[in-house]
Design a protein around this nucleic acid. Structure first.
Length: 427
RNA sequence: GGAGAAGUACCCAAGUGGUUCAAGGGGACGGUCUCGAAAACCGUUAGCAGGUCGCAUGGUCUGGCGAGGGUUCGAAUCCCUUCUUCUCCGCCA
């Protein structure tokens, strides 16, 4: 949530910043409401104070034998008088909330404005592999190597899903283990969290109200619950409504969860296989920092995500997203995009973002500094990594003329030392 | 899923309608004493959000006893809803 004070003090600045995200924001109605709320607060509180004073005098007056009925009547009249104003005040407050909670985060000043087309790749690792044979796409490879069963997934679940089988499942598990062991080595705290979350968690993460249609809601649960679309939603809520101490920061977490998303839009035809599905595996990193520590943390998260891909030896690019392509809740986002040869494009495998205090304000995540002063934390998150694009990239980039696929060295310890995946013989 | 009990500040805990603008204890912090420490004694220990006054240390008001409503002149206390925890029962891939 954007700081109301900032909107009040610098409405034009906020308007312009949001415009970079392609968000049209007219501060006037909001400012009017804030002024109205302030006026009403004054009136209501003064009246309340008077009521309290009178009520408190009752025992004394009673003892002295005074007329208590008079006081009762007076307070009752005051309360009645106040009722209307109070209702108005509550209505104004609710309206302010509804106007502010839908606003996206302000983009960092250095970001290009506009959408996707203004994204700026600024670092490349490795090279596009060149094949002296006709390369296969990952769907073909996964099937010929016996790694993934799309048909049976459709049977037991539906479209947009897949089943990892045998070595295919082991490869997926090896990737996750490689990520996990790296994060542990880097001093991040491992978390395994519930996958079913309450609505407040979605709100704090900033996924609601905007993305309410994009998650799976559980029927029959009251209050409503949804299945997490990313572990970020859980991790960033771990310290909701808490006051941390400065010495505790930064807090560094990671969690493995499947991610469940409706992906309500239509599939593009080239997004076959596991490029986009209703469920995919991801290891997610989250940091809580002080309000001055998030830039350092951001760089660390980007580097960690890069290092994971580099360990696998996969060609990728690092992309600084334009304001309009940053996530709704985020002030800045860098995407790491891996090369998928069959598609001829780079696809996101990690999105590292700095929410600054946006999520912290929504979830009252604060810390006390050394002088006892209260601050909002900054929160950051980054995939480290999602497997659903790494896996196809790995198959495609590492394929050999004979249809086999070389397993990166870092994964071999997690796969019983297997170094090559070979096509299964057709019987 | 059913039945019962409970949620009070950093922790324990008293408090079932009005000098409680939340007792008492522990812990923590500060002080006295001491060369220093322990012990003892004295003191501080609702934070927070918001309004308002002030250059400011701060004062004042409103909210605040799990959360949200309600009753009442007045609510930690009564009523409703809800969340969480504990105990027992049921169910159990």
């Amino acid at each position: 949530m954007i700081d109301l004070k900032l909107i009040e003090e610098r409405p034009e600045y906020v308007k312009e910043a949001l415009a970079k995200k392609g968000w049209e924001f007219d501060p006037a109605p909001l400012l009017a409401l804030i002024a109205k709320r302030r006026e009403l607060t004054k009136v209501v509180e003064t009246n309340k104070a008077e009521q309290n004073k009178l009520s408190k005098s009752v025992p004394e007056v009673k003892k002295a034998g005074g007329n208590v009925q008079e006081i009762f009547a007076k307070v009752k009249a005051l309360a009645a008088e106040n009722k209307e104003k109070e209702d108005e005040l509550n209505a104004a407050a609710a309206e302010i909330q509804s106007l502010v909670e839908v606003l996206p985060n302000l983009p960092d000043p250095d970001l290009a404005s506009g959408a996707k087309e203004n994204n700026a790749p600024f670092y490349v690792f490795g090279k596009k592999p060149e094949f002296d044979f006709k390369p296969k796409d990952h769907v073909e490879l996964a099937e010929s190597l016996g790694l993934i069963d799309y048909k049976r997934a459709a049977k037991i679940s539906g479209s947009g899903t897949w089943v990892y089988t045998g070595l295919g499942a082991q490869l997926e598990w090896a990737l996750l283990n490689y990520f996990i062991s790296t994060h542990i080595k880097d001093g991040y705290t491992m978390i395994l969290c519930p996958h079913i979350l309450n609505e407040d968690s979605g709100f704090t993460a900033g996924q609601f109200p905007k993305f309410k249609e994009d998650v799976f809601w559980l029927e029959g649960s009251e209050p409503r619950k949804f299945i997490l679309p990313t572990a970020e939603t859980a991790l960033v809520n771990l310290h909701r409504n808490e006051v941390l101490t400065e010495a505790d920061l930064p807090k560094k977490y990671f969690a493995y969860t499947p991610c469940y998303r409706k992906e309500a839009g239509s599939y593009r035809t080239e997004e076959r296989g596991m490029i986009r599905g209703y469920q995919f595996d991801k290891v997610e990193m989250v940091q809580y920092t002080t309000d001055t520590g998030s830039d350092v943390a951001f760089d660390e998260l980007v580097k960690k995500a890069q290092a994971l891909l580099e360990g696998l030896g996969l060609h990728y690019q690092l992309d600084k997203l334009a304001a309009g392509d940053c996530s709704h809740s985020m002030a800045r986002t860098y995407d790491i995009e891996v090369w998928i040869p069959s598609m001829g494009i780079y696809k996101e495998v990690s999105s590292v973002s700095n929410a600054r205090d946006y999520q912290a304000r929504r979830g009252m995540i604060r810390y006390k500094d050394k002088d006892g002063k209260m601050h909002f934390c900054h929160t950051l998150n980054g995939s480290g990594l999602a497997t659903s694009r790494v896996y196809p990239a790995l198959l495609e980039q590492n394929q050999q003329a004979d249809g086999s696929v070389i397993i990166p060295e870092v994964l071999r310890p997690f796969m019983g030392g297997i170094s090559v995946l070979k096509p299964i013989e057709k019987k």
